[in-house]
Design a protein around this nucleic acid. Sequence first.
DNA 1: GTCGGAAGGA
DNA 2: TCCTTCCGAC
Length: 547
Amino acid sequence: MGRILSPEKSLRLTPLSLCSTVGRREKMKAGCSIVDKPEGGGGYHFPEWAYKTESSPGSRQIQLWHFILELLQKEEFRHVIAWQQGEYGEFVIKDPDEVARLWGRRKCKPQMNYDKLSRALRYYYNKRILHKTKGKRFTYKFNFNKLVMPNYPFINIRPNGVVPQSAPPVPTASSRFHFPPLDAHSPTEDSQPGGRFPGGSLGPGSTPEALAGDGGGGDRKPELPELLEDSSSDWRRGGVDLLAPHGGPGGGGSVAHPKRKPDIVLPLFPRPGMFPDPHSPFAVSPLPGRGGVLNVPISPALSLTPTLFSYSPSPGLSPFTGSSCFSFNPEEMKHYLHSQACSVFNYHLSPRTFPRYPLVVPPLQCQVPLEEQPQFPIKLQPPPAGRKNRERLESAEEAAQLRVKVEPAGDREPEEAKGKDGAERREEGSGAEEGKGGPVFARPAAPSWLPAPAQPGSSSSEEPPPEQQQQHPGESGVEKPPRDPCGEAGAQEKREDALMPPKLRLKRRWNGDRQAEPPEENGGSGLWNGPNAAAAVPKAVATASDT
DNA sequence: GTCGGAAGGA
DNA sequence: TCCTTCCGAC
């Protein structure tokens, strides 16, 4: 699997080194110093991709939460900011003014104060990078679900089992890691005096097992899982099934809650598939192992997907790409991306769930091949404007006018469709579409590989390119949207003619010239729906002969 | 102390 | 996009 980052190849992002790395990137002004250099290697190694957040891909600016992590990992700033003992990811700003000052120095904002800094921190709430620990002054909590996943996918214990002293409190074996609530902060969460990181540091012999025994996290109160909003139901949907065999929510001693999601139980200790990361600022990754029975998802969207791969989370951006820190397995990446995409669609997740990899994935077995979406814009996304207007329009005539307006706007559809969730798009495009977009996209063209049904309106559909015809025959008409309903009938006819025996072509033309005129909506091409529609030709001939 | 809207900068 | 700044509300 993935090789471990070597310190030589990772950036040593101590506060001072940040001055030379991030600082350079930030075009530091003269006199704008960086956090004081802690002499003596109290620092920790952050690979460069740790400075690339999913929310700001490509950003080279140090972000506040990175900075907070930096401070947290520094022993010398422990009097300023420190991990809250006993709470995974929770930290307390002991000296808000000093933290603000340091942040201001880093950002060359001498006017920085805690009020402003806290405002920036509050912006992380919505991003779920942080949340506030209510009732505790200056206490915040990292959402490592958000942070670890995209940025520290291989975070784990160090090779020798030593947990970095700057590591946040970690859940123990007996204390399950529960994703913190998004908004409903856990009022029950309490720090553990003399927790697993006494004095904020651990001795070199503090193996995870030792931690497990030491922490005795069984008395840790469970937290409400996070991801309540957009993905909660999906998370429940995807997670419950997986978790159900493991005993359900009660397994972790969690309090029953009518609305709460099942507890997310994270594997906490080295198992096959979990690898140490000497560069992790965290002690243990909540990442589940790959393919294990207890491969409990950390993310709803990853619930059914392997989560540990031997690739950098930012392969294209990683400074280690090709330089041996992480091996990159294209196949695994492909599979991973595909799985993510499928998860997004299957669980109606926001694509932001996988912010690092936009859903541009090679199609494998995803139910809704994404690559088809741009090809079938109209089919997959009934025009929102049309629907809205249809709801407003009471007159059928107005609606009819609207249809006329909407249909040619095929180019506009993808734009509007972007605003919708892909899952919704898929749902609409997989059966209910006829009901929803029926009037507008009535009578999707019968696929050319199917026998031509008696669909008078299908004639205007454009035949898909050859490669599309062969692509997913099994998806039949459901996946084959009506192509541009208003045009290209002639072009289609030409293509059809090319496929047609000359004799039939002549017959058809002769017949079409006679029949295409009365029914305008037919456009004359509806009789021919592809190779399988040859049976329609005799019929047409018969009709012509009748006349 | 905390929250979040608003405007604006880089 | 990520803050920074300001500010009113709680």
